[in-house]
Write a protein that binds this DNA or RNA. Sequence first.
DNA 1: CGTTGCCGTCGAAGCGATTCGATGCTCGGG
DNA 2: CCCGAGCATCGAATCGCTTCGACGGCAACG
Lengths: 335, 335
Amino acid sequence: MATTIDDVARAAGVSTSTVSYVLSGKRPISAPTRQRVERAIRELGYRPHAGARALASSRTNVLALMAPLRVDVNVSVIMQFVTGVVTAARAYDHDVLLLTADEVAGMERVASGSMVDALVMMDIEADDPRVPVLVGLRQPAVLIGLPRDPEGLSCVDLDFEAAGRLAVRHLARRGHRRVALLGSPRAVLERHTSYADRMLRGFTQEVADAGLEGVTEPCESSMAGAVEAVDRVLERLPDVTGLVVHNEVALPWVVATLRERGRHVPDDVSVVAVCPPDVATNQPLPLTSVDIPAHTIGKVAVEMAMARVEADEPAETRLLAPVLVERASTGTVVG
Amino acid sequence: MATTIDDVARAAGVSTSTVSYVLSGKRPISAPTRQRVERAIRELGYRPHAGARALASSRTNVLALMAPLRVDVNVSVIMQFVTGVVTAARAYDHDVLLLTADEVAGMERVASGSMVDALVMMDIEADDPRVPVLVGLRQPAVLIGLPRDPEGLSCVDLDFEAAGRLAVRHLARRGHRRVALLGSPRAVLERHTSYADRMLRGFTQEVADAGLEGVTEPCESSMAGAVEAVDRVLERLPDVTGLVVHNEVALPWVVATLRERGRHVPDDVSVVAVCPPDVATNQPLPLTSVDIPAHTIGKVAVEMAMARVEADEPAETRLLAPVLVERASTGTVVG
DNA sequence: CGTTGCCGTCGAAGCGATTCGATGCTCGGG
DNA sequence: CCCGAGCATCGAATCGCTTCGACGGCAACG
């Protein structure tokens, strides 16, 4: 079990460095030698010791992922980010160390302890306190989200601003003149979480540009929160005809509440959801939605991180263009 | 940045071993010396190199968590397991390496590569192919779930069998004679996933013991699946009065479908959910439920793993007793 | 036929910690 | 006054791997 590279070398009748080069491919090894070594590796069931490797090469083949593991919001979206990151990391022969967002010291610990080659951070806020810390680290970091000042870090996310505009434009084109945004919970907005801020901005701007009438309401991630938010919207803008909903958990309750208040979807009110496609389709009425490609974003984040690990390319910011899929929840305003 | 233990030793005017002993506390160090060393550590911002430490001590302070990151089922439960594991691990000064369940080779990789001190596996099946592999590893493993034969591994889980009995007994005590179980998706059952099997067994046995009439139906985790499952139950047992639902995602649709089919909850049909409390309460009607204490289970799993790392205690199996909380969805059958 | 140059392999020096014996003190007891 | 026992500290070996310079042999070249 505790076989070392020396055991392999002995078994294959070569030096340890030769074994190492067979493994890494960093120097040419003749075919016969390579085969002898590979056979020895196989027969002994040899695996290099990760710690020793990290020590000698100063590469750990691990990357840190800091995820908001609170249960409050969009759990399924988070899950998709995480799977995206994990599977992409494996493609680069890396494993993923999971850090929780409430442990800010964690990233310093794993980074200065040389436990990881790079860091991926989710749930970025406008003035995220983690950003300055990340800047000082030896390892590259990728932010999923967009702080006010990236300070030279790489960022990737859905272009939520464009997503907001897109949703409004979709409604406007269908003749809607009074629209509302049911957004993130108040706490998320007050933290100035990047995606919530940008969504709000995109919505507001397009409403203004298109000369529409619009209101925005925060929405807690619960049934009660959804009911309350819908009622507030109906109170502030009684003849609203278009609703943009950016809150997974509230989504089903929003639609249900509208119906209870006598508004039929899509005949009276059109609904555009901003969520992963599976959430949009797994509703009584399949919802027109702007996709949140969480899995892809996670994957891209890893790719950007790896690019900076392998060749220290400059940081960049990538915003994925939103895509709207029309389903059964949006219609045209007649008259 | 790249400060080593030697830098610290030099700055404090002591030998490297002294610094090491200050850090680990494994040998007595006089107060003045300790303070000089601690000061040097602080001023240099020194952190031990994880790889070097792992190499020398053969302890990595990392544990592996294998989680089913498919999006299909009970995402929020999984999330709670994960947070439970991560926070508990931190209490033991460990970090968590996240493995996906679809990569069975992963656990061998991280274990024989000495990347982790222990492994925690979620989503165990009756004849889980991972079990024999885990048995052969150097590191201890803890299963969340109960395979047919644990082969000397530690196991921990909610006692789902007792949970099933408890739910049925609750209904029986209230006069229900015809009950049904809406369980896991067919795929989960066919894999003989531990919790689903045991739930089913507990339900079935208690139905028999109490002399009730009972049917069980699998239930896909979607709205369509819930509707279908409810309809099947109503077809097989038209005058059913008690329903045990063990499927987070389907839960809201089950209740909604019952209402649509003209059965009022709890007047016509009582519903007992098996899920975390927050899911049960965040419904239009607060649901009587048997709690799934995912966070606690994750925590216990880590504690068991750490116990075996630090002192190799024998393996044990721990089943947490279920607790039923009565809310608004269950009533008494009159007449 | 003697060089030059390249290819494949080896040896040894780290990487940054832990840990075990050894050592120099001081202190108390005989 | 000397010796043994502790206590605090040190030195050196060790963990398992990577990597760089060196080296032997063979082919091609003049």
